[in-house]
Amino acid sequence: MWVHGYKRLNRHMWLHRIIRHMLIVSATVLFGGFFGATLVRVAPGFGVDEQQLDTRLSNESVQAIRHSRDSERDIFGFYTQYLGGLFRGNLGFSHSLGRPVTQLLAERVPVTFYSVIKGLVGGWLVGLVLALSAAMLRSKTYDFACTLASGFFLCLPSAVLAILFLLIQGPVPLGIGLTVFPKIFRYARNLLVQAYALPHVLTAQSKGLSGGRILFWHVLPLATPQLVALAGASVTVALGAAIPIEVVCDSPGIGQLAWLAALGRDLPVLVVLTILVTVITVLANATADLAISALRHRPS
């Protein structure tokens, strides 16, 4: 259906798009979990437990430890069994932490969720405000200062940023925000500068339109779809930054859990975490994609 030159998506087309995205999410989740589990299974040190090196343990005890992980040796068996358990709400048992994975996730997911959300909101606010002001002011000094600040944070590993945060007793979300903000600033700044240089925007400026009107009527509508796509991608960046920051700052979230599980060679926890983060990433990207479709096909 075409309304004022724009193709308007009808209900059937929306349904089609949503189903397609759900299929992609399901395929990615299945593949992600299987890929993660396979990667771990084929790693040369799979099945080796530091407990086995304990000289106080008898041969029988060492054998018992080895046999306790027999079910994880057959990767297809493990994964099928795991998926079956998943449908029954059983996410497995953590060998290294001695607790059900569901319990661990229930405790830790909210911590990371709030840290990532707050970090994303903060990072986006700072990045977007700086990008907007740099594009609107067109001051070389201001632009240089903003680029320098964002460049500095872009060059710092998030783990080192977390160490600096320990020094000033800063909160974890701020660390995540500072990891996200330089990427937002750099991308949004380039996008807005390009939009401000377009002929129709220059014409609008020469005709004396106010800064706000130019921004909201001529610049942002052009930049919004790409900024929405960036919003989806920034979730991945924030989740990636959460691992080192939570480990260094001793924040009990899923980033720290992944690290603990990696050190403890804990396959069930690692597979669940890989799937969980994949689901969040794919859902964020799918939402951004649908939002872009809605923006591009809205009536004028």
Binding site: A27, A43, P44, G45, V48, A258
Partner: peptide
């Protein structure tokens, strides 16, 4: 490539790196 981009590769890297033999 979309599937690969959706995978949390820092998680995977962390996992695989930690699964190496203890005496690597």
């Amino acid at each position: 490539s979309d599937l690969f981009m959706s995978l949390p590769w820092l998680f995977l890297l962390l996992t695989f790196r930690a699964m190496l033999p203890l005496n690597v």
